[in-house]
């Protein structure tokens, strides 16, 4: 076990949580992410193998799924991002390595854990918040929808699932993204 102390994307040792009106915005630093892209001609095999890893079928276009341990969302044709708990104690068995071991030559797997900041947004009136952030039609963002969009000039993924929305944005701009979320929430509520 190494002794380097992690920082959250917002630059602190503990995640930040803000409640504004009916909405709570929580930084979630404890997720591991890995991209899975099917190799040429391996689309079907990879989709199938990914389903067995996830314990549920791989997400279709603009969808996200949650399996018993791992979740995943669609990123591009035959390309997904898988998410699971970040194992601080045993980073050697990181998510990407485990996926690569399962998927072998069916897929290219890349660790994306450090690339994104994740905010979980819960509460009533998410529509009123997100209509000030991005051009997604929140009425059509039913549970299980995952779309890439722009929030204050930042390319982000917005996932809609029971109980709230998750926003993945570029980690280096975590503070800007957080500022955008907070400002929009104060404006909306």
């Amino acid at each position: 076990m190494h002794d380097l102390a992690p920082l959250t994307a917002l630059g602190s040792s503990a995640p930040q949580r803000d409640t504004i009106g009916p909405v709570t915005i929580t930084e979630n630093p404890d997720r591991a992410l890995a991209s899975v892209a099917a190799r040429l001609g391996q689309d079907a095999a990879c989709t199938k193998a990914l389903a067995s890893v996830l314990g549920t079928s791989a997400p279709d276009v603009a969808q996200c799924v949650q399996g018993p341990a791992l979740g995943a969302f669609w990123m591009a044709q035959h390309c997904w991002i898988v998410d699971g708990p970040y194992d601080l104690d045993d980073p050697q068995t990181d998510l990407a390595a485990r996926l690569k071991a399962e998927l072998g030559d069916m897929a290219s797997v890349t660790d994306q854990s450090g690339a994104w900041v994740r905010f979980d947004v819960h509460g009533d009136g998410l529509g009123a918040l997100f209509e000030r952030l991005c051009n997604l039609d929140m009425a059509r963002m039913t549970d299980g929808t995952a779309r890439r969009t722009m929030i204050d000039h930042l390319g982000c993924f917005v996932l809609s699932h029971r109980g709230g929305n998750t926003v993945y944005g570029p980690r280096s701009s975590a503070q800007s993204l957080h500022h955008a979320l907070i400002t929009a929430a104060r404006s909306a509520f």
Partner: peptide
């Protein structure tokens, strides 16, 4: 289009 190659940015993933 038929090269077996996959791309993803990892700029942010590594310090």
């Amino acid at each position: 289009p038929d090269m077996d190659v996959q791309l993803i940015s990892t700029t942010e993933a590594w310090a």
